[in-house]
């Protein structure tokens, strides 16, 4: 019985400790942007290229197929009410408000988040992080801040791409395959989708970018236990990132509704 309570106590201490470290890393990341020495801009661009440009292919692929399947599904449902003309707005609204940012977040968490955690974890267990420290370079500023900035800046841009290719995918299926009039499809879409909808999606993706970068950096930066520890860090980064994206998506949606 005592062992049971000890386990609960140990687990609680671990969770509180991890949450504290994660929050401290988040706060320091923002603080270090503005404190001297000056941030290594080259590093930031390198991470932006990694998170943004190198995720483009997977995001375009996911976005376009999601838009296409959404058009097919919504057509099946809307046809029952004779509202086939609403396929365009349904696809565009779903992409802009929900699927664009969430799918982009999940894809980037899987691709860039795991890679970030692996890279930082490997640097940690091979003493490269310690080497940075001994050379008078703040490892958190050098390694974490560029990744957090890249996540924050690139996720909204990737979400816009996902929204666009998703809508194009929906248009292709709706107009070319299902035979909805092109003018009606575009007209209805423009009638119902507002800039507010797109903006809401962008706000979400900003949060998702931060979540992906900070969970990946946290898991990698504090990795222990050699190759096994690095593998665990990568898995934790993806799982933690994806779960937090979905939970925060609900919270953000209820706040912005």
């Amino acid at each position: 019985m005592t062992g049971f309570f000890e386990d609960i106590g140990r687990y609680t201490v671990r969770v509180v400790n991890s949450t504290g470290l994660l929050c401290a890393m988040l706060l320091k990341s923002f603080l270090y942007i503005f404190t001297p020495p000056r941030l290594n801009i080259r590093n930031v661009f390198k991470q932006m290229e990694f998170v943004g440009v190198q995720s483009l292919f997977v995001v375009i692929l996911t976005g376009s197929f999601t838009g296409m399947v959404l058009a097919l599904q919504s057509y099946t449902a809307l046809k029952r009410f004779g509202a086939e003309s609403m396929v365009g707005p349904t696809v565009a609204l779903s992409m802009a408000r929900e699927l664009g940012p969430v799918l982009t977040g999940l894809m980037v968490a899987g691709r860039a988040g795991s890679a970030m955690a692996t890279e930082l974890g490997t640097m940690r267990v091979t003493e490269q992080v310690d080497a940075l420290f001994t050379m008078g370079v703040n490892p958190m500023k050098y390694l974490v801040v560029p990744r957090v900035l890249a996540g924050l800046l690139m996720l909204p841009l990737l979400a816009i791409v996902t929204d666009f290719v998703g809508s194009v995918g929906g248009y292709m299926i709706g107009v070319k395959y299902l035979g909805i009039n092109s003018g009606v499809y575009i007209g209805r879409t423009l009638d119902y989708v507002t800039t507010g909808d797109i903006f809401e999606g962008l706000i979400k993706s900003l949060f998702f970018g931060l979540i992906i970068a900070i969970t990946a950096c946290y898991n990698g930066y504090y990795a222990t236990g050699g190759a096994k520890g690095v593998g665990k860090a990568a898995t934790s980064a993806v799982v933690m990132g994806c779960v937090l994206i979905l939970v925060s998506d609900y919270i953000l949606t209820s706040i912005m509704m």
């Binding site: 003493e127 080497a131 420290f133 050379m135 008078g136």
Partner: peptide
């Protein structure tokens, strides 16, 4: 301590060279 660090150099067991 950062000033103190400037007076030190260190060779790590695994050399700890930056892979990238």
């Amino acid at each position: 301590f950062n000033t103190v660090l400037g007076r030190f150099g260190m060779l790590f067991q695994s050399a700890a060279l930056f892979d990238s």
